[in-house]
Design a protein around this nucleic acid. Structure first.
Length: 908
RNA sequence: AGGCUCGUAGCUCAGUUGGUUAGAGCGCUACCUUGACACGGUAGAGGUCUGGGGUUCGAGUCCCCACGAGCCUACCA
């Protein structure tokens, strides 16, 4: 059969077919009863209404590479996909959509709003999973989960009730982070701190019954309306006489006490601090200590409240301006200075967060954190119930954070999310926390029970993800088989948000760590070093790039740059390089197919190649011996496979990718294919058949090696090669095994000599500007068997360059009158004295002599050093001595040549 | 304020416990359209590893300082 195959790889033509095939055939459905060690991984659920961004692309590529790699090595593999309801961000999206239609979501009411969100989820929710399918992620789609599904809700309610009954969840009134735009409380993690240039306003507070003023310094003058004291340090001589007196709060004309508290920093500002317990965390504490009133002067949307007197109704920033002006006119503004300070920003709305007094639900963290700290701190390979965190510096970050953890605000004033399973009795105010809605109050029997309007922080349900998705708390087959999961791959930006919480909740609830290892991948940044972001317009759209370069190229590119602990800056150049690599593989396959056809036409059956049993015996022998080049290739294959296994086991994706790249392009294409070309034409038919069988076997193995990185291309080509009947996918085929018997250091060394010899000839040709089409004669002295074979076979077409003709092996020393390359293992002479640029040759040799002299001198000095000899390991000394000897031989040859050249130059 | 990371070829980056002439991709130069591939081939140029000091027989690799870039955590008004 003649194979038709496009000249260039066109991923767009090929990818959709396989993406569909993988899903339709359910090839990646996990089977709890299947044999083999377990590899299970759950996806960090992306926002259900989101779409694939470049960060996902990296994350999913890494997950998929490791998943496919494990699967091919015979693991019982589960890759569980799913999505997150993403409370705040999803609600914000829908609220905005409604706003664009002129609809105020408040007016819609809770029930109708929730319907709208579900409708939006139905509409947009398929987007990201569809994209995941199209990029070929090898998930088990039959196990897809959603954090807000009824099943997940049941788990969430159960967990909430349990933690509440254990006293770990409680409700309290305290100062929290409030976003006036999202209209909800935020956890500390959802507040980002930014350094901004602000002002320090020095305001005079008149002391009651005196002409004196106390000047306070503040960055937030608008909060003064809620001041309930002024604090000074108890030992501050400047203010000692004022303690116990009162000041008249300007603009409000309210008398407030001057109190003494050690929290005041005498050095800062004026040494006197206004105390606003309702709007500042420190002041809140001081207020508690001194029994001060808490006056909330703002509303939930960031306006001044009725308690703000004349300023009521003003926006908080407008109020600030007006207050400053008023103070100025009243002569109470002493001065304004520049002041840099850190400001809390809502991670979603980017507005300034208000510290605000509010009653919320919290989760106690100290007790939960301890076992998680233990699990991470005590990590050792294979030690039960410990967690490995990679890279190592993140591990320390993780521990530091958990050591200083504070309680988690888990309630949110949103409508989209898991509603808190708490009910209040309208009559006796009893609080009822239960998995199912109570019909009546458990205390007074009143039927007037209403549910808490708040929902839970999104991260609460995602904190249960690794086990809730596997059927916990039931002891399902999935849970028993796949929990704890083997690995979690996610970004370090959600180390605390998500990883830490899963670790804590997982250990507490399931009794086991939720994952044995966490690999924190890099962030993909823009050229200027920023985190890529769609809102800033700095993001690259992976869907567009996949279309442009091919998904395999994209995957390969990301993998080859994904060095642990370093961020990735993606570029078109780099992507282009990966695309070229895909094309290279494609064209190597074309070469293979052409020859496959030729051999079929020649009457050779190719079916026997389809059997993996035969394949495992590769490389094939010719007259009882593996031909040198085949021995070399399979030796390289064994070490590359080993290297890839080692690299992937340690999350060193870049090493693995670069390793297969070098192997495929550098070894397989540049050397092996070129070498094999004349062999395929070998007059000895048997030799030719062995050559192409090994070519096939080598390519087939390379394809399987490449598959985890480039699934589409390899699947396509694999199907075009003879395969065992009934096998459905390369993804279910075997990953190459680094056969010890393939390793052949002798073949490696011999082949290296040949490579160097050939490179030398090409180099002479290039430097002497010899006509590439013209055959030239050459003489060679060498004791190497491979070199002799090369000469005997006279493979003058190797590497497309007709470089040798009448290559003669001569005994003894090679004369001058030509161009010579010398190494310790061979001398090569191309006797074309008349066209040789002897000056160039002399210059070249002199350069070599310089390098060699320096090197030899430094090695001699080293070796002469007694301390070195006594302290350096034997291996290093021996190696250095051997190299030194070689260098000396090379140096002598170069010096001889220069001398001879100069002599013959003078004589002509 | 504390902690962390980074500074290696023109560009983007690798470089695993310190060990023999520091690597890759892209770019660059010269030559080559040869029946897998110009998204290609061949040959080549190009870094002394930000600067300074130290430890060591030996440092890009460990320590200290400086300069530069970035990240995370943090209640100083």
């Amino acid at each position: 059969m003649a194979r038709e195959i496009a000249k260039a790889y066109e991923p767009q033509q090929i990818e959709p077919r396989w993406a569909e095939y993988w899903v339709a055939e359910a090839l990646f459905k996990a089977d709890t009863k299947a044999r083999g060690p377990v590899f299970s991984i759950v996806i960090p659920p992306p926002n259900v209404t989101g779409s694939l961004h470049i960060g996902h692309m990296l994350e999913h590529t890494e997950i998929d590479i490791l998943t496919r790699w494990h699967r091919m090595r015979g693991f019982n593999t589960l890759f569980l996909p799913g999505t997150d309801h993403a409370g705040i961000s999803t609600q914000r999206v829908v609220v905005k959509q409604l706003m664009d239609q002129g609809i105020d979501y408040h007016k819609l009411g809770r029930e109708e709003f929730e319907k709208r969100v579900w409708a939006w989820k139905a509409e947009a929710g398929g987007q990201i999973t569809k994209q995941m399918r199209s990029i070929g992620e090898s998930c088990d789609w039959s196990r897809e989960r959603f954090t807000l599904s009824p099943e997940m809700s049941r788990v969430v309610r159960k967990v909430f009730v349990q933690l509440y009954s254990e006293g770990l969840i409680y409700r309290e009134t305290r100062l929290v982070n409030w976003c006036p735009v999202c209209l909800t409380v935020l956890s500390d993690l959802e507040v980002n701190h930014e350094d901004r240039q602000g002002h320090l306003w020095h305001i005079r507070y008149p002391v009651a019954g005196s002409q004196e003023f106390v000047t306070v310094a503040t960055t937030r003058p608008e909060t003064m309306l809620g001041d309930t004291a002024v604090a000074v340090h108890p030992e501050d001589e400047r203010y000692k006489h004022l303690a116990g007196k009162k000041v008249l709060l300007p603009l409000m004309n309210r008398e407030i006490p001057i109190i003494a508290d050690a929290m005041v920093d005498r050095e800062f500002g004026t040494g006197a601090v206004k105390i606003t317990p309702a709007h500042d965390a420190n002041d809140f504490e001081v207020g508690k200590r001194h029994g001060l009133a808490e006056i909330d002067v703002m509303t939930d949307d960031g306006r001044m409240s009725a308690a703000a007197g004349d300023f009521a109704g003003l926006d908080r920033f407008e109020a600030r301006k007006r207050i400053v002006e008023d103070l100025k006119t009243k002569g109470l503004l002493e001065k304004v200075t520049e002041h840099a300070h850190s400001i809390g920003i809502c991670e979603r709305s980017k507005t300034i967060v208000e510290p605000r007094i509010s009653t919320q639900w919290f989760c106690k963290m100290k007790g939960l954190a301890e076992p998680a700290i233990k699990a991470v701190r005590e990590y050792e390979p294979r030690k039960e119930n410990t967690i490995q965190i990679v890279p190592d510096n993140r591990r320390q970050e993780f521990l530091n954070w958990l050591d200083n953890i504070r309680d988690w605000t888990i309630s949110r004033q949103l409508w989209w999310g898991h509603r808190i399973p708490a009910w209040y009795c309208g009559d006796c105010e009893e609080l009822i926390v239960a998995e199912e809605a109570p019909v009546k109050c458990v205390k007074c029997g009143s039927g007037k029970v209403t549910q808490d309007p708040d929902v839970l922080d999104t991260w609460f349900s995602s904190g249960l993800w690794p086990f809730s998705t596997l059927g916990w708390p039931e002891k399902t087959a999935d849970f028993e088989k796949y929990y704890p999961t083997s690995l979690l791959i996610t970004g370090y930006d959600i180390l605390f948000f998500w990883v830490a919480r899963m670790a804590m909740l997982g250990i507490h609830l399931s009794g086991k760590v939720p994952f044995r290892a966490v690999y924190l991948h890099s962030l993909v940044r823009t050229g200027s070093g920023e985190k890529m972001s769609k809102t800033k317009g700095t993001g690259l759209d992976p869907v567009v790039l996949n279309q442009q370069y091919g998904t395999d190229a994209m995957r390969f590119c990301l993998a080859s740059m994904a060095a642990p602990g370093t961020d990735i800056v993606l570029s078109d150049d780099r992507l282009g390089g990966a695309r070229n690599f895909a094309n290279k593989i494609w064209n190597a396959a074309r070469f293979l197919f052409v020859n496959l056809d030729k051999f079929e036409q020649g009457g050779t059956a190719i079916e026997e190649l389809a059997s993996p049993e035969v394949r495992a015996l590769a490389p094939y022998k010719f007259k009882g011996n593996v031909p040198l080049v085949d021995a070399w290739l399979f030796s390289r294959l064994a070490s590359v496979t080993e290297m890839v296994n080692e690299a992937l086991a340690n999350y060193r994706f870049h090493e693995a990718a670069q390793g297969v790249y070098q192997f495929f392009w550098g070894d397989f294409c540049d050397w092996y294919i070129e070498w094999v070309k004349p062999e395929l034409q070998n007059a000895d038919r048997e030799r030719a058949i062995v050559a192409w069988k090994n070519l096939f076997a080598g390519f087939d193995a390379a394809l399987r090696l490449l598959h985890p990185f480039m699934p589409f291309l390899t699947e396509e080509l694999w199907h075009q090669l003879p395969q065992r009947p009934g096998t459905k996918s390369i993804a279910l085929d075997k990953f190459p095994v680094a056969q010890e018997s393939w390793k052949n250091s002798g073949a490696l060394e011999e082949f290296e000599v040949l490579q160097y010899l050939i490179t030398s000839v090409r180099n002479i040709r290039a430097e002497q500007k010899l006509d590439p089409k013209k055959k030239i004669a050459a003489e060679l002295t060498s004791k190497e068997a491979a070199v002799r074979e090369l000469v005997e076979r006279n493979l003058d077409t190797i590497l497309r360059v007709a470089f040798l003709s009448d290559l003669k092996l001569i005994p003894g020393k090679i004369g001058v009158g030509g161009v010579i390359r010398s190494t310790a293992r061979f001398d090569l002479r191309i006797p074309f004295a008349e066209i040789v640029d002897s000056q160039a040759e002399i210059a070249r040799s002199k350069k070599e002599i310089d390098g060699l002299t320096k090197d030899i001198a430094s090695k001699e000095a080293q070796l002469a050093n007694e301390t070195f000899r006594s302290r350096a390991p034997e291996k290093i000394i021996k190696g250095m001595e051997a190299t030194l000897e070689q260098r000396r031989v090379e140096l002598r040859k170069h010096m001889d040549r220069v001398a001879e050249f100069e002599k013959s130059d003078r004589s002509t």
